[in-house]
Design a binder for these strands. Structure first.
Lengths: 173, 173
DNA sequence: ACTGAAAACCAAGATTT
DNA sequence: AAATCTTGGTTTTCAGT
């Protein structure tokens, strides 16, 4: 399966847990894990088929899926291959920050080219994945916009040459 | 929305395009982009509802979705929040390699804790994202198994402190 | 588990390019 | 001619009781 990694463009999905969302925090039982595995293979698999596979009624599967979605344990979404939709250049950018890391992270998160921001321990304070249309776009993004942010001390760009593995199915073993 | 990033655990989904998969390579038209946007919000949204939103019949939407899936332009999958399913430690690992980068990439890709492998240009040859149950697990993985791979020269680990943004919806603007 | 309602599926036939 | 969309009828799934 070709690469499938998020780029912003479109509806923004923030990591902040929406207010009012119930927090599960209970370890998943075997059955829920099996259901998730089924949906990791095919997010539109019918509930009845899932039920057959995990030994549950259709309705029971439906309720469990709804609960998993409500609690934010999983989401079911389309993921696309950036190379097939006109974005030819991806990169990871390691950023070091002076001062407030969080505020820099916020500004980076707000950029449409940025699909991934994580605060890290190590020689970078932030790792930022970006998806660009081409090298010019990437250059403009890094040199004009990211390095221009106040608080950004250094950046190091790792241009993607080849994506080798990209999985969405975890947490279930 | 909480973080949602792939960890292996479970069915393996390789990036290699399955043989016989038709290669689209035609730029997406506006309608397909709109359909993808709909499915990025909710991967199980009914075809009829999507049709209403984009101005197509239910059957036409279904056919287009099938085509997008067949061509590997997108997939519809469940993605889970590792923190909610018992994995408390994520990290990015920068790897430098002696010799064949691809073979090291293959071996890393085969590890269940590894959910992301990319060949990069820059001071690392590979970037590898891992999802571990705890710090002990991460330590064991890095020091006993990754550094032990022949061809691995150096590794640098960036432990995730906080995931700030994670998007799956791209390519559509 | 049962049931009405909704959605998905299928096969032609129509339309567009 | 090929690809894409629509229509109508049928089967399956869904959601609430």
């Amino acid at each position: 399966m070709p690469q499938v990694r998020g780029k912003d463009h479109g509806v923004t999905r923030k990591l902040v847990r929406p207010a009012g969302r119930p927090n599960a925090s209970q370890p998943l039982d075997e059955t829920s894990k099996q259901i998730i595995e089924q949906l990791q293979e095919d997010g539109r698999r019918p509930y009845a088929a899932i039920g057959k596979a995990v030994g549950l009624s259709e309705a029971a599967v439906r309720q469990r899926v709804q609960r998993l979605l409500d609690h934010g344990v999983m989401q079911i979404v389309a993921v696309t291959d950036p190379l097939q939709v006109g974005f030819t250049r991806q990169a990871m950018i390691g950023v070091t920050v002076d001062g407030e890391i969080e505020s820099v992270a916020d500004e980076l998160s707000a950029m449409t080219e940025v699909d991934y921001v994580v605060v890290t321990a190590g020689s970078f304070d932030l790792l930022v994945e970006v998806v660009c249309e081409d090298d010019d776009h990437l250059l403009e993004l890094v040199s004009r916009r990211i390095r221009a942010l106040s608080g950004v001390r250094t950046t190091e760009t790792f241009v993607y040459l080849k994506l080798r593995k990209q999985l969405y199915n975890w947490g279930t073993r």
